[in-house]
């Protein structure tokens, strides 16, 4: 590559990163303000809005609920998504196409439509406005993310490796455990992360299906911002970012991102 081209590429890359990271920087900076208003650049430095956030009972309850729902969603969706991707790999012809389309439907339909459909369905089976109902809704909406990522990783897996394993006397479980799982771990981790992050900041679905008396963090922040416009909201957002990063680190420690 010539020097001007390399400079150009670097410039574009910097632009992209700036575009993505700038809002993050603005939010975190304004959460550190000592002033009374959410503004950028911050007025002095202080952690008072973080203290305020952690002292706010409604926001704390919402944070805990969001984390719980996201954690359960991640585990459930990763397991179901892996099994669905394996089934997708084993099938062929029209059955394979239909399975894929069916699983991706929540991604293709407007979130509002999915939410209203789920609302009717959950009321019908007696789970309207319950935590389990919300949990199911989150799983349905995040499943496509996990599925796509895991199915893509499985597509990269040479079928001859499974043939080799089976011919060497391995059971289906042995083959999955020793060959398939280690080689698609990257895809599974990515899928799990997508599921976690999507669930953690899901709004429309949670808004329509939230359990009585329960609020997730995005909903609680929305409520909060309707009455107050102080930097507590920015502090809450900053905490979410830190938690998301913590989630990535934990998952990386558990399963490893090395072959991502």
């Amino acid at each position: 590559m010539t020097v001007p081209l390399r400079l150009g590429a670097g410039f574009v890359l910097a632009l992209i990163y700036g575009f993505i990271l700038l809002p993050l920087v603005v939010v975190i900076a304004s959460s550190l303000t000592a002033g009374e208003l959410m503004q950028f650049p911050p007025q002095g430095l202080s952690l008072r809005w973080f203290a305020r956030f952690f002292a706010d009972e409604a926001l704390m309850q919402a944070l805990v609920l969001s984390l719980r729902v996201a954690a359960v969603t991640t585990v459930a969706v990763t397991v179901i998504g892996t099994m669905a991707a394996l089934a997708h790999r084993a099938l062929s012809g029209w059955a394979r196409q239909w399975l894929r389309t069916g699983l991706l439907l929540p991604l293709l339909l407007p979130e509002l439509l999915t939410s209203i459909g789920l609302l009717f369905f959950l009321y019908r089976i007696g789970l309207g406005k319950t935590l389990i109902g919300l949990q199911i809704a989150h799983a349905v909406v995040t499943l496509p993310f996990a599925f796509v990522s895991i199915a893509a990783a499985l597509d990269q897996l040479d079928p001859a490796l499974e043939d080799a394993s089976n011919s060497l006397g391995a059971s289906g479980w042995d083959t999955f455990r020793h060959i398939v799982l280690p080689l698609v771990r990257g895809g599974i981790v990515t899928g799990a992360l997508f599921a976690f992050v999507t669930s953690f900041d899901m709004f429309t679905v949670s808004f329509l299906l939230k359990p009585i008396g329960g609020n997730t963090l995005p909903l609680a922040l929305f409520d909060y911002l309707s009455y107050d416009y102080d930097p507590t909201a920015a502090a809450a957002a900053a905490v979410s970012v830190v938690l998301a990063i913590a989630g990535v680190v934990v998952i990386e420690k558990l399963v490893g991102l090395r072959n991502l």
Binding site: A160, A164, N166, S167, G169, S171
Partner: peptide, 14 residues
């Protein structure tokens, strides 16, 4: 397959 006890060598080694 797994009970046949046949050794298989593949073209791309696998």
């Amino acid at each position: 397959l797994r009970r046949r006890d046949f050794g298989v060598v593949f073209q791309n080694y696998a």
